[in-house]
Simulated assay, not measured.
Amino acid sequence: MARPFPASTGRGVRVAVVDSGVHPDHPHIDASRIDAGVTILADGTIEAGADATLDRLGHGTAVTAAIQEKAPDATCLPVRVFRDGLKTSAAALVTAIRWAVAQEAEIVNLSLGSINATHRDIFARVADEAVAAGILIVAAREANDLPCYPGALPQVLGVAPDWECPRERYRIETIDAQRTAIASGYPRAIPGVPLQRNLYGISFAVAQMSGFAALACERVGRVPSSDRAAAIHEALAQEAALFSQT
């Protein structure tokens, strides 16, 4: 099956992966494409160091592998916000996005968020900062059928899963006046393991869209930072329209 952006590999694109870190020795990970990252604590404190982003949960490694599968030449920057479980704070996520801005990433992969509506405004402010810096945030649009922030914001590429969508494809739909990406929630298959026995869910739909967004970013090329996020959005929509006809 033909894939989107067949001439692109994500070369030159930096993707901040906000998750549980990465295990660089995993066979699905290309460690040469992993840059230095950080841990961000629940209060927003940033920690660096040799083991700051070592994944002890496995989730971030699987998410990073999904991004690298789609965009093998992109550089991933691990931002560990999960330590003992898949739970963090709004303060940590805001700090993670601002750290990605400071590191001049082009894509922020955020497969989580907050359903607390009181967090909407702070996420809107930091999403505006990201857009102004030329960063596209790719994030889960909903959680438990509730809007999830920042993914439900118009400045962000919100993602929803489709269990029937081929992993090599995605589509763009307008939901509640927001352009939304629809992608498979399954990671790459493990031989001999049924799909439902492996990790799966919205995290992998988001990761695959971050990979596709890295390909779109390479396609877009050098544009003013203030226009880059919108240009990536448009490239994703145009490519989806092309291969939806095949």
Rank of each mutant, 00 (worst) to 15 (best):
V131C: 13
A160F: 01
Y149N: 02
A117F: 14
L157D: 01
P147N: 08
I135Y: 06
D176R: 10
G192K: 11
L136D: 04
H119K: 00
P194Q: 15
A207C: 00
R120C: 14
Y186T: 06
A139I: 01
E142S: 12
Y170G: 06
C148A: 05
R167C: 06
V131T: 09
L215Y: 01
S210R: 06
N144L: 12
L215E: 03
I122R: 15
A181G: 13
M209H: 00
Q178N: 15
D145S: 15
D176S: 12
V206K: 02
A189N: 05
A213S: 13
T174M: 06
L195G: 04
F204R: 09
F212G: 12
I190N: 07
R169W: 05
G158T: 06
A140Y: 04
P150E: 10
V138Q: 00
P150N: 10
G134P: 08
L146D: 06
H119A: 05
A213G: 07
F123W: 02
R171T: 09
I182N: 07
F212I: 12
R167I: 11
A216V: 10
N198I: 01
T118Y: 11
P191V: 11
R188A: 15
Y186N: 07
L157S: 00
L146N: 03
M209G: 01
D176C: 04
S210F: 08
R179Q: 10
D162N: 15
I137G: 07
C148S: 09
F212P: 10
Q155W: 00
N144Y: 02
V156W: 04
G211S: 14
A124H: 06
G151E: 01
Q208Y: 09
T118V: 11
V126D: 01
E168F: 06
V138S: 05
A133P: 07
P191Q: 14
A189M: 03
Q208M: 13
D162Q: 14
L195K: 08
W163D: 13
E218L: 10
E218A: 05
R179W: 01
V193I: 13
Q208S: 12
D176E: 14
P161W: 04
A207T: 07
F123P: 00
S184T: 12
M209D: 04
V131G: 11
I190S: 03
D145I: 13
C148G: 00
C165V: 08
G201Q: 05
P194A: 14
E142M: 07
P150V: 15
A181Y: 00
D121W: 13
R197W: 08
Y170Q: 02
I202N: 10
P161C: 08
I172D: 00
T118A: 15
G158S: 00
A189W: 02
